[in-house]
Structure formats: C-alpha cells, structure tokens
Design a protein around this nucleic acid. Structure first.
Length: 490
RNA sequence: CGGGAUGUAGCGUAGCCCGGUAUCGCGUCAGCAUGGGGUGCUGGAGGUCGCAGGUUCGAAUCCUGCCAUCCCGACCA
C-alpha cells in the first residue's frame, strides 16, 4: 500500500479512485468496465446484504432465483421497457467455439442460437413470464419475491461501484390483487431502503418520486432515495417502482378476483446495488481514507500491539485476548493485528485507510498502568483510557460514532441545499455551491430536458412530504405549485 | 460512435525531439538494527520498452499499420 491520498478538494474523482484502490475495496478487471470486488469491499457488501435480507424477510418476502438469460422475445414485450434498456444489452448469439485450424479459438458459426438471449439488465420480463404460471386466483396473491443477483448493463463510461458493466444487486418483484396494495408495497420498500440508508449506512436521504423523464422503463411511478455526496453531487441510492399492470398485460398475467371477475395483476419492483458502497464511500470518507459507520464496518475495532521482543508481545497478547473476549460477548467485531511484519505506525495508517471505526493500541506503558490508547476514526482523536469497563465504553462509543457520522452527512446536505427563484441564481448555485437546489418547475418534460441540456442538472425527485407552495417555474415562468429538487448527479 | 491523450518491472515514472540494449521512486526478497503514527542501513531479484511490419550495422527512440487503455461528449442503478 502506497502512502497518502489525493485530497478531496484537489481532485474529488481521483480521491475516490485512489481510495477504492488503497482501502483494498475493488480494482479494475481485465474485462472492460467490470470490476473485481476484493475481500474487504465484498465484506461491506455482505454486511449490507445481511441487513437488507433480514428487512425483506421481516416484511414478508422470500428469496428465489431466476435465470441470467432472457429470451429476446420476452424482452420485447413491454414497449417502454425495451426502449429503456435496448441500447445497453449484452446479447448471446452462439453457444459453441471451435478451433479454426490455425490454433485460434473462434465462434462456431454453425452453432447459432435459434433465439438470441439477452443477459439480464433487470429481470421483470423473465419473472412476469414465470408469474403467469403461478397466478390464477386472488388466493395466489400476493407474491413477494426477491432475488440477489448480478445484472449487466453495457455502459459507455464506468466507475468502480458507481457504474460498472456488471454489478451486484437485489431485485424484488411483487404481484398484487389491487392497485392500492401494489402502491403500498412500493412505498413500504422505499421506506425500508430509506431506513437502511439512514440508520445503518448513516447516509441521510430524500424520499421522493421521479419525474416522467427519470422514471424506470415500464413503471407508472418510480420512487427513489436520493443521497448527497460530499462534493455536492446527488446519487440515486435505491429505487422502488409501481409497475401498474404493464407487465401483467405484456405477459398476460390475469387472476380471478373475489367477485369472480378476471383482472390483470398489479406489480411492484425495487432494487439497490453495489452502488451503495460508492455512496457509503463518498458520503463519509476523508483525506486519510475510508470512514465507515460502525454498523457497516467489517471490522469495528482493531487492536494493535506495541512491543519490543517476544516476551512483551506475550503479555500484551494476553490483555488483548481478554479485551477481544469482552467485545465479542457484546457482538462487536474485533481484529487483533499481531503481525510482526509491519510496524505499528504502518498499521495505524492502514486501518485508517480502511475506515475501521475504533483502534486500540496496547504497549508496555499501558500494561503497567492498566490502560489502552483508544483512537476514533471519525474524529481522529486519541485518548488513553482505563481497561476497566472498556467494553462498555467501546459499545457506547460505536453508537456515538454511528450518530456522529450521520450528523456530519446531514449537516453537509443542509449546507448544500439551496432554494432559488430565478434561473440565473439556479445556474450560479449549481456551479459555485453545488448540491440540492430546490426550485419551481412547470411540470413539463420539455422544460426538464431543456434545463438538463443547459445545466446538466436533473430533477432528482419530487419529495414525498413536499410542502405545497405557489411560485413560478424558474425556466418558463409558468405557475407551479411546489418546488422540486434539482442537482447534478452521478 | 465523435474530440483529445497515453502505452517502458507488480504500481508510478525518466529516457524518445538528437538511434548505441533502459533511469528513478514505491513495492518485493535476504540480513542486521528498530518498534507509542507509513523505520533505517546493506545487499539482491525483477523488463517480449502495447503488437506487427519497415528503415538502419544497430530501434524504447524514426516510419507505417493494428490493438488496448484513459480523459471529454452522447447513454446510465
């Protein structure tokens, strides 16, 4: 691991890239646009999965698995869905290779697929094709299924975690007897995501609806959680879609309701991806490396011994083991780094880069005094504390750190949220101050598109709890009933 | 797919204009010392100079073609 990190103010993008690499989260693979998620980065994903998976189960969902490949004909059935994804699909056309006689492996042209297969960019089509066979009566509803999977979207430009050609995610797909129930499900899952983002990832989010332009291809309504990064750019952190009867109609999924009438099934889908790791990184980290909220940290506490010779190490290790036992009893994950191959200072820097929330250093002086040195990653403060009641102290500190990290992110968002009433002001804020810009909009896709073309800012969402307020569109001057949230986004 | 740039050791680089078999840093390996914030010294290993042609006694360097990657745009969780 090399020293130092480009500062955020100097070059935010480079800071991000170096951080991902130096914190050992991920690296570029030999496959263009695809990343290798390294063990430490994957451990964060596993933390996310564990929490989300439990939340899904607590809200009545079950996991299942659907194929990676989708027949092209399925994919074409829902018109706006195809339009949305057509330009970024990987297509399988052949199923065999052969030797061309010169030692080269080539595609065997005689092994052409009857029907080409799409590598799923999302699974609505294959799932609704399947649901058709599962649903006949209202008694079969609702179906509440989630799958953890990889998907492929052939992106032009990629960035580790934020946008890669292949990424990991979960996609929930539910089927309901009524519109109201499907909408309630859509909203419920949005709240699950928001709760996860704020109370686990310590990332404050806006809950809102997307405008028609930003809506998921095939949805009637797209709900989202929007987070603000430290550089003032917005990041869509999760989406939940009310699909109406669009996919039921496309795949002819009907059921007999209580009244004996035949009706199309109502649907929702919702997902979050490994992009959340990008959000986590950019929301909290500093110029010294990653800053992880304790609830998302693969290692919450690291213990570094400082010693001269084996004998002293033995003594320190005994103390360390005792502390580890106390912490583990409280469900705190702890690592004792007694590698003799690195020096303490190196380890300090390394765990700082990796965002471990708390570090305990134990040296000879501490043994004499029954103390340890305790260092917080979020504030980078150090203090020497007594061994007595250490586990309780740490337990409380972890809670405090979790809160502190959230508060900081919330403060950043508050500082970077601005209300503007003119287009001039709007552009100036976007350029100079960045962040969320609350402005009136006439509600038309045309105006939204114009603003996007001229400023690169998009409407991130119309907040769900948005107060009504009469005003005039900053672009056209037409009357407007509420402000919407604009930002430049990842 | 348009506009720009770059390919030299695991990583980052110098050398290229002005041809003579490759520089430095990090990392790595060995030994000794060191150990409370990225340790020091000594010694070692590691290179088809993106690929293929061409010019030349001789090419990382000059010429031609190709490939790849990165940045900016269009597209996007």
């Amino acid at each position: 691991m090399s020293k130092g990190l480009t500062s955020r103010t100097e070059d935010y993008s480079q800071w991000y890239n170096e951080l991902v690499s130096k914190a050992d989260l991920a690296e570029h693979s030999s496959v263009k646009g695809c990343m290798v998620i390294k063990p430490y980065g994957y451990a964060i994903w596993e933390k996310m999965q564990a929490v989300l998976d439990q939340k899904f189960k607590d809200t009545g969902h079950s996991n299942a698995y659907f194929p990676l490949f989708i027949p092209k004909s399925f994919f074409s059935k829902e018109a706006s869905h195809v339009d949305g994804f057509a330009t970024e699909c990987a297509v399988v056309t052949h199923y065999r290779l052969k030797n061309d006689g010169n030692g080269n492996i080539i595609v065997d042209e005689t092994a052409k697929l009857e029907e080409e297969l799409i590598v799923r960019p999302t699974s609505e089509t294959i799932i609704w094709n399947t649901y058709k066979g599962w649903i006949q009566s209202y008694r079969d509803l609702p179906i509440l299924v989630n799958q953890w999977a990889n998907v492929v979207r052939w992106e032009m430009r990629t960035r580790l975690f934020l946008r890669t050609t292949e990424f990991l995610w979960q996609e929930g797909h539910t089927a309901h007897a009524t519109q109201a129930e499907a909408i309630a499900e859509t909203e419920q899952m949005l709240n699950v995501y928001a709760d996860f983002a704020e109370n686990w990832m310590a990332v404050p989010v806006l809950r809102g609806k997307k405008t028609a332009n930003e809506r998921f291809a095939g949805a009637l309504d797209t709900y989202c959680i929007e987070a603000l990064m430290q550089d003032g750019k917005a990041l869509q952190a999760g989406t939940s879609h009310f699909l109406g009867q669009n996919f039921a109609k496309a795949f002819d999924v009907k059921f007999t309701n209580r009244e004996g009438k035949i009706e199309y099934v109502w649907a929702s889908s919702w997902g979050v991806s490994t992009r959340l790791i990008g959000a986590l990184i950019m929301a909290h980290s500093d110029d010294f490396g990653l800053v992880l909220p304790p609830k998302m940290a693969p290692i919450q506490v690291v213990i570094v011994p400082i010693y001269k010779g084996d004998e002293e190490l033995q003594k320190i290790s005994a103390t360390a083991q005792q502390i580890m036992g106390d912490l583990k009893a409280k469900g705190i994950s702890v690592k004792y780094d007694n590698r003799d191959t690195q020096r303490p200072g190196f380890k300090f820097a390394e765990y700082e880069m990796k965002g471990v929330p708390l570090r305990i250093a134990i040296g000879g002086r501490d043994l004499e005094n029954n103390t340890v040195e305790l260092a917080r990653r979020d504030t980078r403060s150090k203090e020497t504390v007594s061994n007595q009641g250490l586990a309780n102290l740490i337990e409380n500190l972890l809670t405090e750190i979790q809160q502190n990290i959230f508060d900081k992110a919330l403060l950043n968002r508050a500082e970077k949220s601005t209300r503007v009433d003119t287009y001039e002001e709007f552009k100036k804020v976007l350029d100079d101050k960045t962040g969320f810009v609350y402005a009136h909009w006439d509600g038309t896709p045309e105006t939204e598109t114009k603003i996007k073309e001229e400023t690169k800012a998009t409407i991130r969402c119309i907040p769900l709890d948005n107060p009504l307020e009469n005003g005039f569109c900053i672009y056209t001057g037409k009357p407007s009933k509420q402000r919407v949230v604009f930002a430049r986004a990842y």
